[in-house]
Simulated assay, not measured.
Amino acid sequence: MASKGERIDGLDALRGFAIFGILLINIQVFSGWGFVSADTRQALTWSEWDEPIATWLDILVRAKFYSLFSLLFGYSFMMLAQRVQQSPVRYHLRRMLGLLVIGTAHSLFLSPWDILMLYGVMGLFLGAFLNVRAPTLAACGVALLIVTAVALWFAPQLGLADLGSGTSLRLLQDNVPALSGGSYLEVVEANAYLSVSVFLDRIEHLRPLRVMAMFLFGAAAARLHLAERNSGHVRLLIVVALVGLVVGTALAMAEVKLGEESLAHRVVSLLGGVGAPPLLAMGYGAVLLLWWRGRGRLTGAVRSALAPTGRMALTNYILQSAVCICVFYGMWGDRFASLSLAALMLYSTVFFMAQMIFSAVWLRLFTQGPLEWLWRWQMKRKRPRLLRTSTVT
C-alpha cells in the first residue's frame, strides 16, 4: 500500500492520459471547427479525413475522458480524506470552494466549457460519503446512472426534453462570433453568456448526476486501492477492463452508427449516452492500471512520461485553454475555423507532447504545479514550499 503522503505514479499517469483525451475534444470548440458548417469544413486542408476521425472520437473519446477525469477526482477525494487526520470534512469543503473559485475564473476569463465549477459544486456532496464502504459507493453510483437514464427516457413526456435548449442555442449563436473577431474584453463578455449556455445544456442532460456517479465509482476504487501495484484485485481489474471496453465500445458504436429514428434507436441512444462513457472510462483505467503493474521498460517509460503531466493536471488543464485561445481566437493568433479536424488532432498531439516535457522539467525544479501550489495554499492556509531543494522533506 502507498504510505501516507506518497504519490501513486499510476494514478498520476492516468490523469495525464485523461488530460490528453480532454484536449482532443476541447480543441474542436476552441478552434471554431465545431461551430462552422459542413461546407466550410470541406474546404479545409486534410478535411477528407475528418469524417472517420469525428466518428471514432465520438465512439472512443467524447465524454469518456471527462468521465475518466471524474473517476480519478473521486479516487483522489477518498485517498486525501484517508490521509487528513483532523477535520477531513472541513478540509474537503475548503478544497471544493477553492476549486469552485478557480473554475469560475477559468470559465469567465478562458473557457466557458470549464468542468471545474461542476466538480466544485458536486464535490461538496462527497463529504457525506467519507465513511461509506466500497460496495455501497459503487451501488450508489449505479443507482445515479439508472435515475439519469429513467429521467432522460421520460423527459419528453414531462416536457423537460428541451429545457433551456432554445436559450442555450441563442446564446451560442449570439456570442461565438466574439471568439473569432472580438477584443479580449468582448471575449470575456461572451464567455459569461456562453457559460450560461453550457450550464443549461448540462442541466438538460443531467450531467451533474453523471459526474457524481463517477465520483462515487472513483471513491469505491480508492477504498480498494486499485491504483496501487501491490494491492491485489487483479481479477476485478480484468473483469472491469473486459466489460468496460467490450460493452462500452459496443454501446458507443451502436449509438453513433444507428441512424434510423425508431424505438430501438431511442433505447440504444439512451443506453449509449448514459452507459458508454462510464464503462469505457473504467475500461481504459483498468487496462492501463493492469499494464502499469508490470516492470518492463516500455511500461515504465510510458507511465513515467505521463505521470508529471498528471501531477500537474489542474495547471495543464487550464494551460490548454490559455494556449488555445491565444492560437485560435481572433484577438491574437486569428486561426479560428481555419484548421480541419485532422490537422487539429496533429496539433493536439504535438501540444500534449510539449506539455509532457514542460511538466517533467517544471517538476525537476519545483515540488508541484503553480496552480496546485496556490490551491494547496488555500486549503491548508499555510504557504507550502514550491522550490525544490536537494533535500526533500
Score class of each variant (00 low, 15 high):
residue 12 D to C: 04
residue 19 I to A: 10
residue 20 F to P: 03
residue 28 Q to A: 12
residue 28 Q to V: 14
residue 29 V to N: 05
residue 33 W to A: 02
residue 37 S to L: 07
residue 42 Q to F: 00
residue 45 T to Q: 12
residue 49 W to I: 08
residue 50 D to M: 01
residue 54 A to V: 10
residue 63 A to V: 12
residue 64 K to W: 01
residue 66 Y to Q: 09
residue 70 S to V: 08
residue 73 F to Y: 12
residue 75 Y to V: 12
residue 77 F to Q: 04
residue 80 L to E: 10
residue 82 Q to V: 11
residue 84 V to T: 15
residue 85 Q to V: 14
residue 89 V to E: 07
residue 90 R to A: 14
residue 90 R to V: 07
residue 92 H to N: 08
residue 97 L to Q: 10
residue 102 I to G: 00
residue 103 G to N: 07
residue 109 F to K: 01
residue 110 L to F: 15
residue 111 S to T: 05
residue 112 P to W: 10
residue 113 W to N: 14
residue 113 W to K: 08
residue 117 M to H: 00
residue 128 A to K: 09
residue 133 R to A: 13
residue 136 T to K: 13
residue 143 A to S: 11
residue 144 L to T: 04
residue 145 L to W: 06
residue 154 F to S: 09
residue 156 P to R: 04
residue 156 P to V: 06
residue 159 G to C: 03
residue 160 L to H: 03
residue 163 L to W: 14
residue 168 S to N: 06
residue 172 L to I: 13
residue 174 D to A: 15
residue 176 V to W: 05
residue 177 P to A: 08
residue 177 P to D: 10
residue 181 G to K: 05
residue 186 E to W: 07
residue 189 E to Q: 12
residue 192 A to F: 13
residue 193 Y to M: 10
residue 200 L to Q: 08
residue 204 E to L: 06
residue 215 F to E: 03
residue 218 G to Q: 01
residue 222 A to T: 03
residue 222 A to H: 01
residue 225 H to Q: 14
residue 228 E to L: 08
residue 231 S to R: 04
residue 232 G to F: 12
residue 235 R to T: 13
residue 236 L to D: 02
residue 237 L to A: 01
residue 240 V to Y: 05
residue 240 V to D: 02
residue 242 L to A: 13
residue 247 V to S: 09
residue 247 V to I: 14
residue 248 G to R: 04
residue 253 M to H: 10
residue 263 L to N: 09
residue 265 H to W: 11
residue 267 V to L: 14
residue 276 A to K: 07
residue 278 P to G: 08
residue 279 L to I: 02
residue 281 A to L: 07
residue 282 M to L: 15
residue 283 G to H: 06
residue 283 G to E: 05
residue 288 L to D: 02
residue 299 T to V: 12
residue 311 R to S: 11
residue 312 M to H: 08
residue 314 L to N: 02
residue 322 A to L: 15
residue 322 A to G: 04
residue 324 C to E: 02
residue 327 V to F: 09
residue 328 F to W: 02
residue 331 M to Q: 11
residue 339 L to P: 00
residue 348 S to L: 07
residue 350 V to C: 15
residue 351 F to I: 03
residue 357 I to F: 04
residue 365 L to W: 10
residue 370 P to G: 02
residue 374 L to K: 01
residue 375 W to M: 08
residue 377 W to C: 08
residue 382 K to Q: 15
residue 385 R to W: 01
residue 386 L to V: 11
residue 387 L to E: 11
residue 391 T to Q: 14
